[in-house]
Design a protein around this nucleic acid. Sequence first.
DNA 1: ATACCATGAACAG
DNA 2: TGTTCCTGGTATC
Length: 268
Amino acid sequence: MPEGHTIHQLARDHRKLLVGRRLAVSSPQGRSAAGAAALTGGRLDDVEAFGKHLFYDWAAGDVLHVHLGLFGRFLLHRGPPPPPVGAIRLRLSAGDDDHPPVTLDLRGPTDCSVGTPDDRDAIVDRLGPDPLRRDADPERFIAAAGRTSRAIGALLLDQSMIAGLGNVYRAEVLFVCGIDPRRAGRDLSEAERRCLWTTAASMLRKGVRERRIVTVDPSELDGPLPREAARGEATYAYHRATCLRCGSPIERFELGNRNCYACPVCQR
DNA sequence: ATACCATGAACAG
DNA sequence: TGTTCCTGGTATC
């Protein structure tokens, strides 16, 4: 279930577990991880998240790129590496030093490949600012969104406009800002575009802290809290039949090749 | 047993 | 715009 918050959380975890250690690298099912095994024995220098992309920097200069796509996930094994089961695209193991042994198995990624720092730069150059990064420039998104006739609901999924949002955050950010997803970017006021950025940033940060997508502020609701809302797992509009705030039927339509959800009352 | 759907994105034309 | 690749859970027969 990876949107940007998951990727940044993974980078943080993997940094803590693996950076500075010499790793064994293998790809039991070969395929996408061409050349990964050649990294074996190298030391990992850093793990970087940018939008939905992960970059593993090896001391020798190689950069391993991982994109989870819709289905990818990492599984962590503590202790000696278990025998690989099923389609494991990449296995990273550390166990040759004083630290406890750990193994990370990667399954189902859209991309897992070894490249150079230039390859990494080429990927990053195609991405818009990532609200979870300190070096993000919000003005790039705010300006670019104001220049296009494309629907704002499509722009928020376009990783070259703003990096890290997926379908859940798209629906919920637009809801909180009270904006209809079908409005053209250039028809939004600057204040509205700024609201989208700051809302996205705070939602993503909360997602990293809580290790899950949390978009609902329980104190703001009129009616009684649904059980999911009390646990912080509810959404206002995403994948709902009725609006969590006002109870109106949620509209569902295709936008940016994905199902988009919006409240016709709360989002003008 | 089979179909479909999902928090993603590249590619062809 | 349509097709294709990933995987796993749920719905449908």
